[in-house]
């Protein structure tokens, strides 16, 4: 029986998981969230509602922003229970 020749179409397979990190969506941002660490209680509610995710937990349990990827939507500021995050112009 003749051997079946298989060809792979160009494209179609992406073999590096999570490779969108190469693209910095932070350049889309027109407003920037800023956290007041005195008010932050480290509840991570901003983190669970972040669509990116662009919020990182610091070693002391409080949060910090990854401005490389934050698109500045402002959900974190609106949902923060202690109003520790404010939105400022870039």
């Amino acid at each position: 029986m003749a051997s079946v020749k298989t060809t792979t179409l160009p494209g179609g397979i992406i073999n590096r998981p999570g490779s969108t990190i190469d693209y910095k969506t932070g350049t889309w941002r027109v407003k920037r969230p800023v956290v007041n660490l005195d008010k932050c209680i480290g509840c991570l509610i901003c983190w669970i509602y972040c669509p990116e995710p662009a919020i990182i937990k610091r070693d002391d349990g409080k949060i910090d922003f990854d401005y490389d990827y934050c698109k500045g939507c402002g959900i974190c500021s609106l949902e923060c229970p202690t109003k520790a995050i404010r939105i400022v112009e870039e």
């Binding site: 998981p17 999570g18 490779s19 969108t20 990190i21 190469d22 693209y23 910095k24 969506t25 889309w28 941002r29 669509p51 990116e52 995710p53 662009a54 990854d66 490389d68 990827y69 698109k71 500045g72 939507c73 402002g74 959900i75």
Partner: peptide, 13 residues
């Protein structure tokens, strides 16, 4: 998390 940042969804998706 099983998704990486840098995806092209609108802000606030």
């Amino acid at each position: 998390d099983l998704i990486a940042p840098g995806h092209r969804a609108c802000a606030g998706c």
